[in-house]
Design a protein around this nucleic acid. Structure first.
Length: 480
RNA sequence: UCUCCCUUAGCUCAGUUGGUUAGAGCACCUGACUGUUAAUCAGGGUGUCCUUGGUUCAAGUCCAAGAGGGAGAGCCA
């Protein structure tokens, strides 16, 4: 007798058509009363209840229905007699696909810390929390591609191995095939990279922006969505050594257009998640409320997850120039009472985390777009303003996350850019191709970078960025 | 890289002023019960108290160094 084709549990639970034979496969989440299997296959947060006729089932088989075991059930999909679910499967045939010895299995049907689950990153997708995160992460990935596709952007695949080290975005990982024990050397004793695979020094990319600009100056509207690598020794809940970045770049856009795009984009993908991840976000919302209840008042989230997401999706972001922000900070209570570790006294200082948090969480109480930063504290490629002191840069600051987007209008004037490259001590020959775009048919253009994991952290309400990527890469940790 | 905090059973945690034999819940094992929803009830403790050294009559507890983890800072997305 052949069983019907396996159906996803998400589909079975939605099914209006009962009293038919179905097959479900998944992992046991609970086995209650020697009778009820809570079965999960990751297609949804929810489990399907499979009811076993224990009186007519081999006792040894029932013993193998342990937490984590993989099973296949075949039987009638019927309306449930119990209260917790509308449908269930009356099992007529049960097969253990893979045993799971509970003595050795690290996961348990109870609260486990995210730190512990991180050490079991190979198994944590099987937990409710991590399953929900992975499904939301996927939905956001799709929403991003959809957003840009719907608006006529083209996805550009920027290189992962790069010969350019001019981006200035951070420390880079060297890519080489030379023998680390005994590399070829030049006459001066330095490593001779001309004998390396690419005939020069190469690194993993820290940003696809410069390449995206090349695309935008031909296709007008492009975006990258790829992995980036930073060898910074950053040990925080907001940094990864390997993360995914979205970098749209639009020809003919000025800084205001850029801010409009970034704000609309963020709201739209958050709305998409709210609409398409109802169960998972509700679960993460409840989870956060429970976690908050364990914390002291001052460490709790000021707004529960779903309210926070709706608030961001529905309200205008505050747009504040750097100059205004410095004024606000200078006259702020914590500054006057010397509560800031870094007091704000003069125009030109870089804003610290504590200042950004004050602006977002205390003063404006909503996402803030800061723009027109002092040229001295920003990258070489940003468009110099008429005051010659500020550049057309913008950062979007989110509550709890800090900087989620950093972007700018790019310097499109050849001579000005060339001067900036000199001022920043960047060897001109390493960016000749970038300068070429300003020599041949240059136009004003703008773009921004969004750290994907920071977005996922925000949308899922997780406290640590290492818990929104399947296998986090951080200093001293590349397990799995 | 800097500052602070943590490390006790498989997991989540308690452990008083340094004082006898190391504690709970969950998980697990044994049994009972069986339409349960974190099932329930009875019984069972499974331990290199992170490591090393020190103080002390006595260290899970105090001190020092190291390892691992976390939070914050810097850098940034």
């Amino acid at each position: 007798m052949s069983s019907p084709k396996r159906e996803k549990i998400a589909d079975l639970l939605k099914s209006q058509e009962v009293n038919r034979e179905v097959t479900a496969k998944g992992w046991v989440r609970a086995f209650r009363s020697n009778r009820f299997i809570a079965l999960n296959d990751g297609s949804t947060l929810h489990n399907v209840q499979a009811v076993v006729d224990y009186e007519n089932t081999d006792e040894d088989l029932l013993k193998r229905l342990t937490y984590g075991a993989a099973v296949s059930v075949f039987g009638q999909l019927v309306a449930s007699q119990g209260k917790g679910q509308s449908v269930e499967i009356q099992v007529s045939r049960l097969e253990i696909l893979g045993d799971c010895n509970p003595d050795d299995y690290p996961l348990q049907p109870k609260r486990q810390t995210m730190e512990f689950l991180r050490e079991n990153a190979h198994l944590r997708p099987r937990t409710n929390t991590f399953g929900a995160i992975l499904r939301v992460r996927h939905a956001l990935t799709f929403a991003i591609h959809k957003y840009f596709t719907d608006r006529g952007f083209y996805n550009i695949h920027s290189p992962i191995i790069t010969g350019s080290d001019a981006e200035g975005a951070g420390e880079m990982f060297r890519v080489t095939t030379l023998d680390p024990q005994n590399p070829p050397t030049t006459e001066t004793g330095a490593v001779d990279y001309s004998q390396d695979f690419f005939g020069k020094e190469t690194n993993l990319t820290v940003s696809g922006q410069l390449e995206a600009e090349l695309g935008a100056l031909a296709l007008s509207q492009v975006y990258t969505f790829g992995p980036t690598f930073r060898a910074e020794n950053s040990n925080t809940s907001r940094h990864l050594a390997e993360f995914w970045m979205i970098e749209p770049e639009v020809a003919f856009n000025d800084l205001t257009d850029n801010m409009d795009l970034a704000e609309d984009f963020l709201k739209e993908v958050i709305r998409y998640a709210l609409e398409h991840c109802v169960d998972d976000l509700q679960f993460l919302h409840d989870r956060q409320v429970q976690e908050d209840a364990r914390k002291p008042q001052n460490e709790r989230n000021p707004m529960p997850l779903l309210d926070k997401l709706k608030f961001v999706a529905e309200n205008e972001f505050a747009r504040v120039s750097y100059t205004e922000a410095v004024e606000v900070l200078r006259n702020s209570k914590p500054n006057k009472k010397k509560k800031f570790q870094y007091p704000v006294n003069e125009w030109g200082v870089d804003l610290q985390s504590e200042h950004e948090r004050f602006l977002v969480e205390k003063h404006y109480k909503k996402p803030v777009i800061l723009f027109d930063y002092p040229a001295k504290i920003k990258a070489f490629y940003m468009r110099l303003n008429e005051d010659e002191k500020t550049v057309r840069a913008m950062d979007i600051l989110f509550p709890g996350i800090g900087e989620i987007v950093g972007g700018s209008q790019r310097e499109e004037r050849y001579e000005v850019l060339r001067q900036k490259i000199q001022d920043f001590d960047i060897p001109e020959e390493s960016v000749w191709w970038y300068l070429d775009t300003r020599k041949f048919g240059t136009v004003p253009h703008s773009g921004f970078g969004l750290g994907f994991e920071r977005l996922v952290t925000f949308v899922t309400g997780m406290g640590n960025i290492r818990d929104v990527i399947p296998f986090p890469r951080t200093p001293q940790n590349a397990e799995f």
